[in-house]
Design a protein around this nucleic acid. Structure first.
Lengths: 231, 231
DNA sequence: CATGGACAACTGCTATAGCAGTTGGCAATC
DNA sequence: GATTGCCAACTGCTATAGCAGTTGTCCATG
């Protein structure tokens, strides 16, 4: 019998297809997991998945190792790999980890971002102002993503970039929800982003770190990932 | 001609040898890099390294992917892999990232550590008290390592554990240095550890996070990784 | 001497095959 | 009926071979 994942219909990868098969398999699997198409506890077989995806077992294995590092699957050596669970507690953990790392990234960005990078951020701010005024949540979400990516790039640390990219996936659970939750949420987030860039302009790492941290935590609360009472 | 890494003599792996070849290759390479035996910019070939280690190319490749995630090597697709550089700036970055993640781990540990885990930590504290009194830096370093590992385990997050384990490797650059630097350093670190456990006992995540963060940052300053003036 | 251009020797990446543990069920035994 | 041992069908892991890009060198050409 083939793996339980065999039945799954994976959505094709959009955008550039020049990716390696391992990278493609990683993204497909990651997306399938966060979308709930692969329930927690589902057994995953390297061979079975390779058959489903129409590729060899090696790239699949590589993808699974990355997912394991991301905390999305658990591998028992010589036994099997299963999809990890994503209860509220775990999502809250990942959110707090992300807040800490985003804060560090902001601190580094405040020290290093050059004028070109800051200009790009401000360009995204302009887009976000428009989208906020128009209440265009889809456009806003995209601009928000690009803004944070610019900060990560400005930080200029490979480990940090990689970690934050991995953590971003967990955000899919509540991203749209957070933006649509409250009418007050949109302008509040915009103001925080603007304050962030001001901190960058002032070259104030500590201020930038604290603001980014607070921003992420508050947005997580708005999405219900973090409880109101707790830090 | 074989790779430049071929000449290297790798130290055998101590302890358990039941590890997978990929895991073994990862540790060997990581240690060789942090020890400076593989200079920055050194070209690494999957095949060449496999030949040197006497294993196949697949485990080597897997090790290199992990090292890339750790920020220790850079891989240009279809071109080559080289050892990354570790200037003072980069080490400072990694230290700040580690401080942030250790802080989050401490916060989670404060919420979840049960009596058994706390007892284990206090057992390590006792060892550290002895070692500090005897100025036995080697014993102290080992106990210190175990103590932090206990905190990471108590946090109970796979991603966090993996990340901190990776970051720990960077600490090799200055670990011994930090402990031997000042006579005042040892008792100071001990006091901080004790304060940390008290915060755990009080179930105060915010206090634990702040104390852990301050502890890591101060120890990094003692080792010269972070400048005195900066955060 | 400077300049392309092709070829050979790399590189990372993927496919196939087979090894060695682990697991679960079925049959023989108590 | 409960228990134990065994065997077949898995599992992740590793080895070998070959693909497809990239790179540098050497020779022909201007």
């Amino acid at each position: 019998m083939a793996s339980a994942a065999t039945d799954l219909v994976f959505r094709p990868l959009e955008g550039q297809d020049a990716l390696s098969l391992a990278e493609g398999a990683y993204r497909r699997l990651r997306d399938a997991i966060v979308r709930g198409e692969l329930a927690a506890g589902t057994k995953i077989s390297e061979r079975g998945l390779a058959l489903t995806l129409g590729i060899s077992a090696q790239p699949v294995r590589e993808a699974l190792r990355r997912l394991e590092a991301d905390g999305m699957v658990l591998t028992q050596p010589r036994s099997g790999t299963i999809v990890a669970e994503f209860g509220p507690d775990r999502l809250a953990e990942m959110g707090r980890i992300r807040a800490a790392l985003e804060g560090t990234a902001a601190a580094l960005a405040a020290e290093r971002a050059d004028d070109a990078a800051l200009a790009l951020m401000e360009a995204q701010l302009a887009v976000m102002r428009d989208a906020t005024a128009a209440a265009d949540t889809a456009r806003l979400a995209a601009a928000n993503e690009r803004f944070h990516a610019l900060v990560h790039a400005a930080a200029g640390n490979a480990f940090l970039l990689r970690s934050l990219t991995s953590l971003r996936a967990y955000d899919h659970f509540n991203r749209v929800r957070a933006l649509e939750s409250t009418p007050k949420e949109l302008p509040k987030a915009l103001a925080e982003h603007e304050g962030l860039v001001k901190a960058f302009r002032k070259r104030d790492p500590e201020l930038a770190e604290e603001r980014m941290r607070a921003h992420v935590i508050r947005s997580l609360r708005a999405g219900g990932v973090l409880k109101k009472g707790k830090k």
